[in-house]
Amino acid sequence: MQTVTRETLLDKASALLASGEVSRVLGWKKGEFAYDVTPAVFESAEEMEKDFVYDIFSGANFSKYLIKETAKEGKVLVFLKPCDSYSFNQLLTEHRFDREKVYAIGIPCDGMMDASTVKALAPEGLVSAERDGDNLVIHTLYDGDKILPYADNLPDRCRHCKSKKVVAYDEMLGENGDVVDSHRFDEVAELEAMSEDARFAFWQNELSRCIRCNACRDVCPACTCEKCVFDNPKSGVENKAISDSYEEKMFHIIRAFHVAGRCTDCGECSRVCPQNIPLHLLNRKFIYDIDRNYGDYMAGAEEGSRAPLVNYKTEDPEAADVLERGDK
């Protein structure tokens, strides 16, 4: 049950803005359609009153925006859902922003819809959607209202929610949850169980749809490099468009490798992908491998923890042994 409403957040933000405690608010802003809620920076209570939304589409993770926002004068207010708070911690671990310049409000989360999920449920004439108790109500132009169970129709990232616990905040609104087990590695295990050929066919099919829009990278709270290697002519691997099937593989492997051990599994990459490529399955593979081989590790669960790929144990398994396990 979400006890935190738009009004709760609005009141809180207005008060903090009024007292001068914060000078900006990172929040969700209404878009052209009801389902394209976007992240935005609000500078006054009036702006917020006009455009701020908090509904089932308020899924965007704000942590990454803090890098830019904290570089400015004054303090930023940010709302952190559980998964956002992991990214928040991870960025702090990597010294990417100044904690002193953030006022973080933790809010509980019961799963957020995203536009593509709802669109898939109502392909024709989608108007808006809302939550009514345990149900998802979709209003459409031609077919009237569709009522579906909310929890069952969540996008993948929320169905496989790793945690309902906000791990970093200055103030918590509503009741904080716990880390949950949601079988998020099941899909990875299924793929692992397939033959090499089948896996290749699967990924070839998925990755060949990539249009290299870079949305996955740009939204990823772990991809915060000043300059990405793929944009850097000096790196030797620069490429900004695709002209061969190799390149999307290269891009996605390297991207997954660069965030391996740092990825908080927030699922933003898959959410924003316009081609609906299940990119989270790449990141989860690394998380799964890390958990199985080097001990459970959740990036961002704790500020200051040492990422597994910049760490080692003398008794780590050999690469060949890790591969054998992946094959089972």
Binding site: E94, H95, E226
Partner: peptide, 15 residues
């Protein structure tokens, strides 16, 4: 280290 590109993330110092 190329300072213009460094993120200051400490990964290098860790290893």
């Amino acid at each position: 280290s190329d300072e213009l590109m460094c993120n200051g993330c400490s990964s290098c110092a860790n290893v």
